[in-house]
Design a protein around this nucleic acid. Structure first.
Length: 892
RNA sequence: GGGGAUGUGGCGGAACCGGUAGACGCGCGGGUCUCAAAAACCCGUUACCGUAAGGUAGUGUGGGUUCGAUUCCCACCAUCCCCACCA
């Protein structure tokens, strides 16, 4: 690929005011950082436009919620993206690197309730202070594309998109049992109520409520969501793919109707993935709130015991249900069903472990081949009938009634059916196929695929969100707001003081007329889940000012999909599923031409710090621990685990304070150096000092030489001393390593290690030069090393890099110059150190010229005194030569 | 119970396709400079034995494949994360 120079043309005269060509002797990060930031801004250095003639790279970091302060997790996330963006720009890509704000959400509303603040003003103030924090870190965002999701200019497109989806039947409204968090005072989507608790309030179990809700038809895309994960293989972390597969939860099986004994027309439908075990079914089990059971209860067709059981189950809160543990309980309903395959009469039970929400809410219990059914049937004395046996077991000896001590649940390919009528002797797979065919032919069942994933409930009973753009008319029912009337804006004068939904109480907002019949009508007073905002924001950045569409499809076609996305693992089944669904929908609406929004995903590790606890003062900040004692009360403290920085555990470090002490470049360098990006990282003051020390070393060696260097000119190889050739070699080897570590592997830690090695080599070279008679070729070699170093630091520590680059006499911006290229010939070693092994064990190492012939090298090895001595008269039976790497001599 | 990772010096980590284990940094020890200190620079730093040259062991444990294994395979142990009565 051809490296490219500047993106935005030459420096304006405004920008050159900020440039200084003479370096200071000492490195003052705060001073140079401010200066370089002003220079980038004046040069509009990071503003880009679509240019189909050039290759693009879209680098995106998950947009932050504007809480008011950035934390170290943000710094790490954005430093990684920033380094990659600059690297890509320097290697010739047209790089889109935007930033924005996920600006709707609860904290703004809570501030309004608590302090009477206006959520919009509270949010805007937070955005302003966070933006300036990010700018102090010197990130290369194209700020001209900044978005905030709480602005009507943005959320009108949430509304527009939702209406388009509604027209296509991908959005619908229905009454549903939903998860309700009392702390959030709103309903939640399934993904946001994992394990029965609210995702924002981990100690708050969700309640179930019946509400009219808006849903996005995620299940329409369930198969594709699962299957196209294969496209992401290699680009996404394996564990994210696994979590999504799990969450989507496809299972293939069959639905079978069981006739109710004595009610010929009535059937119970069950879902099973193991139709092959149906001859082993010993009962049917209904969920306690199964519709058929409701019907029987209303008609007085079940016993008082059944009624009591149903009431008990209905009264359980999710927490009690969890605390109840795995204990399975149930009661016999008094009814019987007919197994359509065997004709056997099976008792119908109801039990707590059968869930309404999955499958049909009814199961056939096969205790011999399912753990749950086994536990339940044993407890209540239901028969356990064995119908599958491993291959090779003596079928004649397998009495179906013989005691089963453990269920046989393995699905070995070779296992076969017994005591299953005409299917006996078939394998599991054969039986499944044949039995489903029979059920379909006789009309009592069919094959069926079930998913764990549900449609996405997006209604929220909150005020600080996108209003749902629908009008409820007593005559015309649900009518979408006409496109010309969008956006439906949030009123500025909402009353947060009284409990309840502020939008619903705002009469001027609610009362409207029907766009269809003109009669009086009411607006929908729910708002959208904030995950709607972040599901498509990546495409808005391509064309953020568009007033007639969410974005121009032609412009988006250039920039999207996102080439590299960077963010935390916590969104593996939230945001990262929603944005995949939403992208497929936008594709089907004709706005995009692909289905997967993110080509490569990096989930960066957390920023951690040790935790401390005192009996009296609870969690302590590490600075409040002095020699193992609490600063306030002198009591000894308990040392906790190293954990993610959090306010509640008081183990946070303020990025601003660190920038004040060390400068942004040092903080950034430490973040990239201390651990590979996907691993957790422990903040360490000593580590930050180490990073700062390295930058000072680079500064000093550049300062020493910057006025003594000749203009750039390469001599022939013969013009250089051995030491100078070695430094050139190191320079070119370093360029090769750093290019690969950043470009291919995203391993910034090893890239920085390589730059440290180059710096060490420069010092070593420098220390052996007599200052009064340095040759011009020596000075060239030093220039080459220093300039390469400055440019390779540009993605990592851009302010310092700019200063060095200017100091070395360059006019343009370092972050816009071409990435240095390496010469393979110059990178080649002249001498090699070849380890000599005897029977795989290292004996000695030989220093040989790089071009040595193989037989000459072997000759050196076998005649080496150490080898001869170790051979003790044995002969060498085999010689293994790995060219350029090692020799292994085998002797027995 | 299911799924996914991870295990290497005092610490963070490196080792690309099976080929010199411990790059780079932190910490620690020693030295140079200084009246002194800081900073900076230089040297050393896996463990054990040895003044040294050198030797032996060594990548969670036990096996296997291989001329050769941190790397591949099998079993086990430990830790972390996610999901979890999903039929």
């Amino acid at each position: 690929m051809e490296p490219r120079g500047t993106l935005t043309g030459s420096l304006t005269s405004e920008a050159s005011k900020h440039r200084r060509s003479i370096m200071e002797e000492k490195y003052f990060p705060q001073e140079i950082e401010e200066r370089q930031q002003a220079r980038w801004k004046a040069a509009k250095a990071f503003e880009v436009t679509a240019d189909p003639a050039r290759p693009k790279f879209y680098c995106l970091e998950m947009l932050p919620y504007p809480s008011g302060r950035i934390h170290m997790g943000h710094v790490r996330n954005y430093t990684i993206g920033d380094a990659l963006s600059t690297f890509k720009r320097m290697t010739g890509f047209n790089v889109l690197h935007p930033m924005g704000w996920d600006a709707f959400g609860m904290p703004a509303e809570n501030a309004a309730i608590k302090h009477g603040a206006r959520p919009d003003q509270w949010t805007i103030e937070n955005i302003d202070s966070m933006r300036s924090q990010l700018q102090r870190l010197g990130f290369n965002y194209d700020w001209s594309r900044e978005i905030a999701t709480c602005t009507p200019a943005y959320y009108r497109w949430n509304q527009w998109l939702l209406i388009e989806m509604w027209k296509k039947g991908l959005v619908y409204r229905r009454k549903a049992t939903v998860n309700w968090c009392v702390k959030c005072n709103t309903s939640l989507a399934n993904e946001q109520a994992e394990g029965g608790f609210c995702w924002r309030h981990e100690d708050t179990p969700v309640e179930q409520r019946e509400l009219e809700q808006w849903f996005i038809r995620v299940t329409h895309y369930a198969d594709e969501l699962l299957d196209s994960l294969a496209e992401l293989e290699g680009g996404w972390p394996e564990r994210v793919l696994a979590m999504q597969r799990n969450w989507i939860g496809r299972s293939r099986g069959a639905e079978i109707d069981f006739e109710i004994d004595g009610e010929a027309k009535q059937t119970v439908r069950v879902f099973t993935t193991r139709i092959d075990t149906i001859f082993g079914a010993s009962s049917l089990i209904l969920a306690p709130d199964h519709p058929l059971l409701n019907e029987w209860a209303e008609a007085g067709k079940v016993s008082a015991e059944v009624l009591r059981f149903r009431e008990e189950q209905a009264a359980l809160t999710p927490r009690e249900r969890l605390e109840e543990g795995r204990e399975k309980t149930g009661v016999f309903t008094g009814w019987w069903a007919i197994n359509p395959f065997s004709g056997a009469k099976l008792p119908i039970w109801t039990a707590n472990f059968v869930l309404t929400g999955y499958g049909t809410g009814a199961v056939m219990a096969v205790p011999a081949h399912d753990e749950r059914d086994f536990d339940f049937s044993q407890k209540y004395g239901l028969p356990i009938r064995r119908v599958i046996v491993p291959a090779g077991s003596d079928v004649s000896r397998n009495d179906p009634q013989a005691e089963v001590s453990l269920p046989y649940t393995a699905k070995e390919e070779s296992a076969q059916l017994i005591h299953s009528g005409e299917w006996s002797g078939l394998t599991i797979a054969e039986a499944q196929q044949s039995m489903i065919a029979r059920a379909e032919q006789r009309g009592f069942g069919q094959s069926r695929v079930n998913f764990k994933i549900r449609d996405w409930g997006i209604s929220r009973q909150r005020a600080w969100g996108t209003p749902l753009p629908f009008i409820h008319c007593p005559v015309c029912q649900i009518v979408p707001v006409p496109a010309a009337q969008l956006p439906v804006e949030l009123p500025a004068d909402l009353n947060f003081k009284t409990p309840g939904a502020p939008l619903a109480e705002h009469r001027a907002f609610v009362e409207t007329s029907c766009p269809s019949c003109g009669g009086p009508a009411r607006r929908d007073t729910d708002t959208m889940d904030t995950f709607v905002d972040s599901s498509w924001y990546y495409s808005r950045y391509c064309d953020p000012g568009n007033e007639s569409l969410p974005f121009d499809p032609a412009v988006a076609a250039y920039w999207t999909p996102v080439d590299q996305y960077i963010g935390g693992i916590e969104h593996a089944v939230l945001h990262l599923i929603y944005t995949r669904v939403w992208t497929k929908i936008m594709r089907d609406l004709g706005l995009l031409n692909f289905g997967e929004p993110i080509t490569r995903l990096l989930t960066q590790g957390m920023v951690c710090l040790a935790t401390y606890r005192c009996e009296e003062h609870d969690w302590l900040h590490p600075n409040d621990v002095i020699e193992g004692r609490c600063r306030h009360c002198q009591r000894p403290v308990t040392v906790g685990r190293i954990e993610k920085m959090s306010k509640s555990k008081k183990n946070t470090i303020d990025p601003d304070e660190m920038i004040r002490i060390y400068g942004a470049d040092t903080v950034r360098l430490f973040m990239l150096f201390a651990a590979p990006p996907e691993k957790d990282l422990e903040w360490s003051e000593a580590g930050a000092e180490g990073a700062s020390r390295f930058l000072n070393r680079v500064w000093r060696i550049t300062w020493k030489w910057h006025t003594l260097l000749p203009p750039t000119e390469a001599g022939g190889a013969e013009d250089y001393s051995g030491a100078a050739r070695a430094l050139r070699r190191k320079t070119h080897q370093t360029i090769e390593r750093v290019s690969r570590d950043i470009g291919d592997r995203l391993q910034f830690n090893t890239a920085i290690a390589a730059l440290m090695e180059l710096t060490n080599e420069l010092y070593a070279f420098d220390s052996q030069l007599p200052m009064d008679q340095v040759s011009s070729s020596d000075r060239f070699v030093i220039r080459e090393a220093l300039e390469s170093l400055a440019r390779m630091l540009a993605p990592l520590t851009p302010h310092l890099a700019e200063e060095l680059w200017s100091g070395l006499g360059h006019q343009g911006l370092a972050v816009q110059t071409a990435w240095p290229t390496f010469d393979q010939k110059l990178a080649l070693e002249e001498e090699l150190e070849i380890p000599i092994q005897l029977n795989g064990k290292l004996v000695t190492r030989l220093i040989v010229p790089a071009g040595i012939a193989e037989d000459a090298l072997v000759e050196l090895a076998v005649t080496n005194p150490r080898i001869v001595q170790r051979l003790e008269g044995r002969t060498i039976s085999k010689t293994i030569v790995v060219p350029g790497r090692l020799i292994n001599l085998v002797a027995r």
